[in-house]
Design a protein around this nucleic acid. Structure first.
Lengths: 333, 333
DNA sequence: GTCCCACGTTACATCGATGTAATGAGTGGC
DNA sequence: GCCACTCATTACATCGATGTAACGTGGGAC
């Protein structure tokens, strides 16, 4: 049977509350009694029951991280950094996959309300803001990414600026026919729309006419879907001079297709991605990409969460994380 | 303020326990009172407090999944499948990263004992079996992978057989100088040792002399470390005919190095991996690998965990998951 | 020597849900 | 019409940790 505060108290010859005081350290305890208690804790191999503590304190020490799909490198890297950063602050992280199933988000929110979760970091896919009504009884929520939300705290990378910068970089050696892979196919994905805006802004600056036939639409951003979209595009369209993929994952799929078709990267076409996932560095050829500090994203998200826990009344806060263009072989001259 | 059973009970004109009975459904409740209670629950937007329930029941509905590093594709895919499978059974998953820090495993175990966790799925790296003493007061534990453990339930892929099969496949077209990447560098990694055993068994069957200079040692199994190990190996050794990487991650690093050196895969050297991570399919060239069903691993692990929760007395159980050799372009003729 | 105060410690109530044992209402048998 | 008996429902105690307020004990001031 597990030891409880009572057992420890009995063994140390004090009251349960004193044991609690020793553990939490806010209420001063005499040195000699503290030692007795610590000895007893050690002897009995006592570990406090977190459910009981959670019930009493109204805090569980657990936050939830909701991602579309853990198996994708981007989500995985975010998860890695959030778990890491959370651990440093003494939080545990519960992971949920929302996938494309809206019921998942519901489950999540009710669990959040059920007090097992002190806060929620949410990386929505196509968040029709409907699903998350930041109600009164919800714990603090921080969103990651580009979300058309004016209520919840948010950490993001300025996609418009990043896409613009990448497009300019791809155009620098005189390339003019720059295609994008991952354009919105009607679902209204915020990410797709913003990146396209940045791309078009760059074209405008460069005096290049927009050409909608260079927008390769692709709903889901995975290597497979990216590869398929590019493959069928190339069946009926001439080869562009450059290809700006809206994620590294799609870029990896694209590289695979190009290689299979015998098209040389970067000689025949320059390729770039977005996200700077670890594998991009080891792609063949190594992938030019938009990079940003995922650890910083994680830290900022946690900071916002923590702050919101102590003060729920402040207005929406939005943190933008810097990006930079990393040029590797796939866009070389 | 959050509604509690009491509030619901008051509003429905019944006792708290009846509300509880309605929710849990084990004790029969009259249809008419059930309706009243359900109405009240809905009206008050009541959500049960999981901490309280956890305290009372001694179960939290949360299991922990401990992985070395979430950012690696292999871990990420395992995590994806475990979270998915757990969700189907109504569990939530708390993720912990053990990294190489043994204190992490300690933290983990004490949290497990602290009752916030009903069970633990552990994917150890170099588990010196010391750290996990499956003590009396620990919740059920299931280990993933090749672990020299005779106490804990385990789900694994037969690495020896898989490595043997892959080596045979690489040798089929008459290749004899087959190198491995990821051999143990002295840390005693169980995975490295077992895969090497399988490789050597195949060589023996084929009548190929073992050649230790074909064992490329590499402690950490990432693209970077794999690439570095191979790169420096090639500086001072002739090119083998085939390269069997002990993980797909290392293989991706290896492909990158080979490409940079202008060595053609598979014409100059065949390359194979292990794990069948999603990106391997889109590697350039696509990666031959040892594949196994990660969803099955997740399901088996959960099954063992669940069974062990109801009956803690059965002996160690070990579940082997089938593998198969998937030949793609990187080992083509 | 009396009074007061500060400090450490204690008893008790509390967080919310649920198992236990007792209560009450209703049914059927004789 | 009485008893036995089922079935739904209730009051109460309980899980373990901790906040609250009361309590005792010591030292210092007068």
């Amino acid at each position: 049977m597990r030891a409880t505060v009572k057992d420890v108290a009995r063994r140390a010859g004090v009251s349960p509350k004193t044991v609690s005081n020793v553990m939490n350290g806010v209420i001063p305890v005499n040195e000699s009694t503290r030692l007795k208690v610590e000895q007893a804790i050690h002897d009995l191999d006592y570990v406090p029951n977190l459910s009981a503590r959670g019930l009493r304190n109204g805090k569980s020490g657990v936050i939830a991280l909701a991602l579309p799909d853990l198996a994708t490198p981007y989500s995985a890297e975010i998860a890695h950094n959030v778990v890491e950063a959370a651990h440093e602050q003494g939080w545990s992280v519960q992971i949920e996959q929302t996938g494309s199933d809206p019921r998942r988000e519901q489950d999540l929110l009710s669990k959040a309300r059920a007090n097992l979760i002190d806060g929620l970091i949410l990386n929505p896919v196509v968040l029709d803001q409907s699903s998350v009504k930041v109600g009164i009884s919800l714990p603090p929520v921080v969103m990651l990414g580009e979300v058309p939300q004016t209520l919840v705290d948010r950490v993001w990378v300025d996609s418009v600026a990043a896409a613009r910068a990448m497009t300019l970089a791809l155009a620098r050696p005189g390339r003019r026919r720059i295609a994008v892979l991952g354009a919105d196919a009607g679902r209204g994905s915020a990410g797709a729309i913003l990146r396209t805006l940045g791309y078009q802004a760059a074209l405008d600056e460069l005096g290049i006419d927009r050409d909608d036939s260079l927008l390769i639409r692709c709903e889901v951003w995975t290597p497979r879907t990216g590869a398929e979209a590019l493959d069928s595009y190339l069946d009926s369209n001439p080869l562009p001079e450059a290809l700006f993929c809206f994620t590294d994952s799609m870029a990896i799929g694209a590289l695979s297709v190009l290689w299979k078709r015998g098209i040389k990267v970067p000689q025949d076409i320059a390729v770039a991605g977005f996200d700077d996932i670890a594998d991009g560095q080891y792609a063949v050829p190594s992938l030019t990409t938009v990079s940003f500090d995922k650890r910083q994203i994680a830290k900022e998200a946690l900071r916002l969460l923590t702050e919101r826990m102590t003060d729920r009344s402040v207005g929406q806060r939005v943190v933008a994380v810097d990006f930079q263009i990393v040029e590797r072989d796939s866009s070389g001259y």
